[in-house]
Design a protein around this nucleic acid. Structure first.
Lengths: 207, 207
DNA sequence: CTAGGCTACGAACAACTGTTCGGTAGGAGG
DNA sequence: CCTCCTACCGAACAGTTGTTCGTAGCCTAG
């Protein structure tokens, strides 16, 4: 058994990853030959065959530009799937909550915290939820949904045209929004005047 | 002038980026046709021509699989620099805190939460810090440091060979570890018997 | 010296790909 | 009504690409 990763083979591998990084698509066999100084496509194809059998690269037969290096050699992107969460800093004046991410700050979070569905981030103002461990200045991640279960923590729009974080208790035609603060009283509104923007799925805080 | 980004064109763009992400090489015109339901390569080529003139994609003429989406539409690699934080689930028995990340779970977090220096993650047990908004089950990110300022929240090892999260108050030869729970009393130990593992720099919670 | 294994070359071929050209269907607007 | 425009199909064509085959040089083991 001969050496597998000869200097030539190594050069070919590096050229493939370079193409991927700089041009976003793999090279053809002849492009590889031109770059490493091999005049015959057969020679390059032979080296690629060896690299493929050794498990270094993958290839779709008979299709041009389908070379991919396995195991990437240097992980450019982490394994976790990040999700881009729009940061809605100011929720005053009702309209803001549905704003798109283009003109706002964004937060990149792993799925574990950002959720799998459509969600947004919100900085909490006020101390109405301190007994639930949500302090002023904390960032809550909110999963966008038009309704919620009894007792869940939601972000809701209320008649005073502000959005608040409260526990959600629907009671027939009215909705009770209960703060988690012994010093504050629950709020009660007609169900038609309360808009549930979503449910709080995670809380983030930095000191 | 007609609409540029019709639903069909948008679908084609999304398919190209999907191919890039999942297979690492762009599709051919006929592959695009098969995917979006266009039977003629000419039709697909026409759409691609429009997208190219509009500046959405780049293309090498007469070469297969050389489509690249300009401006990437969705940043494949986020701008933020992720940090890999080792997750030390069980801190009992003193030894565990300095464990390396290889045999433990890890957490990928943006620098904003993970800090710039050496840090680790820890799941909080007990309710000794609920008045500071740190609930049982919360994950705290701890920056490894051997000392702390007065009043900071630290993770410390104490004689009962357990690690706890408390506020740090050094007082001469003794150290007072103060819980944030009205029902609990501060703990006091000789300074020599308290090991500060690090300072809590962020708190994460999922519901 | 000789045989065998690599490596490389060059030519030829079939498959695939991008491209071009003609033709059809449907809607918008005069 | 007709015309223009757009989107689409189908076929054909030329260029490119991966592949195969035969051959040659070089090195090492026997």
């Amino acid at each position: 058994m001969a050496e597998v990763l000869t200097p030539m083979r190594r050069q070919i591998l590096e050229f493939i990853v370079a193409c991927q990084r700089e041009r976003n698509f793999p090279p053809t066999i002849r492009e590889i030959g031109d770059h490493v100084g091999l005049r015959s496509p057969a020679t390059v194809a032979n080296h690629i065959e060896v690299l493929k059998n050794a498990g270094y690269i993958e290839k779709n037969p008979q299709q041009p530009r389908t070379l991919t290096v396995r195991m990437e050699m240097e992980t450019p992107t982490p394994i976790v799937s990040l999700r881009r969460v729009p940061f809605v800093g100011d929720v005053a004046a009702g309209t803001g909550v549905l704003a798109d991410e283009t003109d706002h700050e964004v937060l990149d979070l792993p799925e574990q915290f950002a959720g799998r569905d459509d969600s947004f981030a919100l900085r909490v103002r006020g101390d109405s939820m301190i007994d639930a461990g949500i302090l002023p200045g904390d960032i809550v991640i909110v999963r966008r949904q038009p309704d919620a279960q009894v007792g869940e923590i939601v972000v809701a729009g209320i008649p005073g045209d502000e959005a608040t974080v409260k526990r959600y208790f629907p009671q027939g035609a009215t909705v009770v929004l209960k703060p988690e603060n012994a010093a504050l009283e629950p709020l009660e509104f007609p169900a038609s005047e309360v808009v549930v923007y979503g449910r709080v799925i995670s809380v983030l805080r930095t000191y």
